[in-house]
Simulated assay, not measured.
Amino acid sequence: MIRCTGVRHRRLTIPSLAANARQIAVIGPNGAGKTTFLGLCAGMEEPNKGEVTLFGRKPSEVRIGWVGEFPDRTMLFSRVYDEIASSLRFRHVSCRESDTRVHETAALLGIEGLLPKATDELSGGEKALVAFAAALVHDPEVLILDEVDSHLDEEAGRRVADAIKSRPGVSVIACTQNMDTAAEADLLLYIEEGCIRHAGTAEEVFEHLKETCFYPAVWRVRGC
């Protein structure tokens, strides 16, 4: 799904990467370049050198749903309904279809009761769910999530996970600080000091991280 060739951007240096998996987890220390990598994949930034493609296309040519680490900073509208509907309106989807999709997506995430509320009245977890709904409502090909789970309790996290499972055609690139969550991904990318140090399955990547804080707590308990 993701292919990087000769990429140099800010502190990132990625000579070559071919990551083909439906769910990709991005992990690593703070300041390693993870958010910059997600921004390149989302097409929010263009690399200074090299090329990033998704499914063989430029990110700008791919339908992408983005949820940043701080959802409240990217909300454009004062009402929850309008925030979720925004991507549909920008694409000139009819009012009837837009209304149906907003309500269906809100119901999927259990936030129908939030639709008439003001966005500035929401809790951090509610804002994250609304931002996720806005990213999901326009049927993206790829969801790019930057530490969204850090705002969610266990129940809200389960709703998001279930919503992703309900869309088998959607690929996910998610940065997370929860290694137990990362271990469930199809492919892991460990970024450190601007470089992808390890890429592979959870077993392959975590084998290199046993003596670090990036080893899943559940695996330590089980003696994996």
Rank of each mutant, 00 (worst) to 15 (best):
V62Q: 13
A131W: 03
S86M: 10
A106N: 11
A107I: 01
A118N: 14
R101T: 01
A85T: 00
P116W: 06
P71M: 11
S123W: 02
S78Q: 13
M75F: 08
D139G: 05
S123V: 00
F132S: 05
A134M: 05
A133H: 06
I84W: 03
V93R: 08
I111D: 09
L136A: 07
L109R: 06
L109C: 07
T119S: 10
V130I: 08
A85L: 02
K117F: 10
V130E: 12
L109H: 04
P71R: 07
S87W: 03
M75T: 05
A134C: 04
R73I: 03
V102C: 02
D120V: 01
T105Q: 11
G125A: 02
S87F: 03
A135N: 06
E126S: 00
D82V: 00
F90K: 05
D120W: 13
R101M: 12
A131S: 15
V67G: 04
E83K: 00
E97F: 01
W66N: 07
A107L: 09
E83N: 02
R79N: 14
Y81Q: 03
D139L: 11
H103N: 14
S86L: 04
R63A: 15
P71V: 06
A128C: 05
R91T: 12
H103K: 15
G68P: 09
W66D: 09
T100G: 07
S78K: 12
A106V: 09
V62H: 12
D120A: 07
L76A: 13
H92Q: 15
A133I: 07
V93L: 12
L136W: 09
R91A: 15
A128T: 01
A131N: 07
E83M: 01
T100I: 00
S123N: 00
D72E: 15
I111Y: 10
G68I: 02
S98R: 07
M75E: 10
